[in-house]
Structures are given as structure tokens and as C-alpha cells.
Design a protein around this nucleic acid. Structure first.
Lengths: 207, 207
DNA sequence: CGAATACAAGACTCTTGCGTCTCGTAACTC
DNA sequence: GAGTTACGAGACGCAAGAGTCTTGTATTCG
């Protein structure tokens, strides 16, 4: 079973033929279901989410959900996938410190102001027990890391970066404290924090 | 309701009188129940834990559990509390870098080799939804931070630390990447990582 | 011994939630 | 209009799990 089998659509014709007979699926319901599932994940976690609850929240009947997803787990995975779907463009501000700060700000915005950030705590718990979800999530993390690698490449080319830099560690030194405050300590993610963090990473890694 | 009401003991006499009549509670069962609960938390998470499961794992009957804890939630909280109970002694190796490395090694050991580390992912999810548990956990985090503060005080006294250091951020720059790898990215927590991390923090904050 | 309590085993009630199904209605194609 | 599918509403069966209770036995005190 693939992690996210597109959607349980039997009707999303592989052949984009003329059209399926009968009343078409409501795309409004499609969106409402996923949005409601994300809301439920944020509020109640992976285990706390109920299909009845999602149906009520979305204003649809359970049958409408089960017509799209064969089981609760498929629904949950589709919602989680939707959250973490978009990967931002690599930033190039022209300097190492500028790139670091822009990256840090993006990360803070991610964990603070997006559904992905709000379900992150539940995702952390879930990937510690679900190998399939863990692999999918690690793939996603890997993609994000590639962006940071580009920052390091550019900084090296500019001669701004220490030659002995372990780029993996540098990325973690920047991202780790942001996730740590968001997930664990609950410390503020304000401008003061961001400035001190970016300063520290710059001092640690700039030539 | 206190976070952890000692234990649901009606018999743990406030007056340390002569002795309660009848057969005393089995301390073997006490320990087995908590250990089984911790195992269950690691394996199944806060929601996945079942009282029947803990009873089976501990080799006791459900009545024996309910005689000690009035409800499942009290059992779970007692188990969680047990995990994160011990706070290590502040380290003084004589140098900032030494203190940082010792602290980092303790943290890696904590997240890698202790029940506390293994239930951490579930704890992260739970504190995002349970205010009571969140407060208790933040208290614990606060206590740990005090230790790191001492490290900074000593380093300042030695003249090793930059005067403009934000100690809170410094602590997060050290601890954040360790938790990040443990909880999120799954990256290795080996000697190479530790060395590079401690080097980076030292470069960022030492004079 | 008798009283009191703990214990294992397990039956029991009650609630919750998954997944299925039916019914009457709505939307779309031919 | 006929046929087909989606929809909301909700009933339904089923399983899992919380918490209670019973029964027979074990342990401790006086």
C-alpha cells in the first residue's frame, strides 16, 4: 500500500475519457473534508481524530467521506500530506547571514502560522511509531535540507564559509533551536531570539 | 486535582501509625505496574496505552492497578512523571567547552538511552493538547535550564563567555539540534555530530 | 483462629468509534 | 424522462477499552 494512494478514487478515471455518468463528486466536499481533518488533527491528534467528528466539522455525511477514503487511516494520511506539501523556493539574499536569517524566518513562520506547524507535535509522536509515515516524513525533511545545502554551496563559493564546515550540523544548529522552542520548551520565537540565533550561527560558521 | 497525586493511595497513611491491617500492598506490583506503563507508553503512545495491556504486561490484574490509580490518566501521569524524575548534577569541567561537551553528552544519553527519551515524542504531542501536563513539563524543562545557566555563570566568571551572550539562546543552540535530530530528522547522534556541534557553539559564544 | 486487606482471574456494563447500509433526494448524461 | 451516481441523515452491527464487581485464595495483624 502506497503511503498516499492519490485518494481512494475509484472514479478518477485513469483514462481521462469523456466523463463518468451520474452526479459528479462535489469538489466543495473534497476540500471541506481535508480541511476538517486537518482541524481535527490539530485539535485532537492522530488518535483523537474521529470520522464522525470530521464529517460533522466538514458538514458532510460519513458516506461522503468513505466514498473518497477507504478507511480512517487513508484520510489522516491525505490530510497530513496536504499540510506538508509545499516546499518553498531556495533563498538567495547575496550573503550567508542574509540567507540564514531568511531561512530562519521561513522556519518560524512554518511552525507558528501553518497547519503543518500545528500538527508537527502529533507528527513527531506518530513517526516514532509508524515506519511508513516516518519514511515519508524523512523524505520531506530531506527535500527541505537540499535547500539549505544550496545556501552552503553559495556561501562556500563566495568564500564566506569555513572550509571545515559540516553542513548537516550547521543546518541543525539553525533549525534545531527553532523546533526545540516550538515543540519542547515553548520559548518565544520573536525577533530577539531570531537575531541572536542567526548571529550565533554566523559567528560559528562564517570565516 | 494535582498533576500527580502521589499515588491513588487511600492507605498510605498520612499518620505513619503502627500499620494498616490486612495484607499489605505488593511493592513488586507497584514497580511492575509503573514499568509496564512506561513500556506501553513507548510502544503505543498516550492514547494507545490500555489498562488491560498494562495489567498483562505487568503480570497483575486490573483490580490491582485500580486499587492504586483511580483512573487511566492518573496511571499515565505517574508513569510519565517517573520517567523524567531525576535531574542530573551540574557539571563543572573547568572550561566552557568542557562543560558544553559534557552537557551535550548527557542530553544525547537522555534522549537515546532512557525511558524519558523514548516517550519524549509522545510527550511532545501530548503537551500540545494538555495544559496541565504542559505546565508540569515546562517546570521540568525550567529546572534543567537552571543547570545550564550555572555553566554560563561560571564561564562568565572565568572570562570565557562573550559579554553580549543571551544565555537562553545559547542553551537552545546546544540542546535544540540534539532534540531536533532525535525527534524530527532522525539524523545520527554520534561523536562526529557532537564534536561539530560543541565546536560550533564554542565558536559562537567563547571570547 | 478471625478480621481485614490484597491479589489473580475474569465476567460484566457502558461508551465510543469504525465501517456498512438504507432511504429519500439532488445532479448529471443520454 | 430513464439511468446512474452523489449526497445528507441516520440506523446498525461490531469491536475495543474503561471501570466495576465477584469469587476464590493469599498474606498480615491481633
Amino acid at each position: 500500500m502506497a503511503v498516499v494512494p492519490a485518494e481512494g478514487d475509484d472514479r478518477a478515471a485513469p483514462c481521462a475519457g469523456p466523463r463518468a455518468p451520474g452526479r459528479p463528486r462535489s469538489s466543495v466536499a473534497d476540500a471541506a473534508i481535508v480541511a476538517a481533518a486537518i482541524d481535527s488533527l490539530e485539535a485532537d491528534g492522530f488518535d483523537g481524530l474521529t470520522v464522525d467528528g470530521v464529517a460533522a466539522r466538514a458538514g458532510v455525511s460519513k458516506a461522503t467521506i468513505y466514498r473518497r477514503y477507504p478507511s480512517k487511516i487513508e484520510l489522516v494520511l491525505a490530510a497530513a500530506q496536504q499540510c506538508i506539501g509545499d516546499i518553498p523556493i531556495p533563498l538567495d539574499t547575496g550573503s550567508l547571514r542574509g540567507d540564514l536569517e531568511a531561512t530562519a524566518r521561513k522556519l518560524v513562520a512554518l511552525v507558528s502560522d501553518t497547519p503543518a506547524g500545528r500538527i508537527m507535535p502529533m507528527l513527531v509522536a506518530e513517526i516514532s511509531r509508524n515506519a511508513e509515515l516516518r519514511d515519508a516524513f524523512r523524505d520531506y525533511i530531506g527535500c527541505r535540507r537540499m535547500i539549505s545545502m544550496e545556501i552552503a554551496q553559495r556561501a562556500l563559493a563566495r568564500g564566506e564559509l569555513r572550509a571545515d564546515t559540516d553542513v548537516d550540523v550547521m543546518v541543525d544548529v539553525l533549525a534545531g533551536p527553532i523546533f526545540y522552542r516550538s515543540l519542547v520548551s515553548g520559548g518565544p520565537l520573536d525577533d530577539n531570539f531570531l537575531t541572536h540565533l542567526v548571529d550565533a550561527v554566523t559567528r560559528a560558521y562564517a570565516i
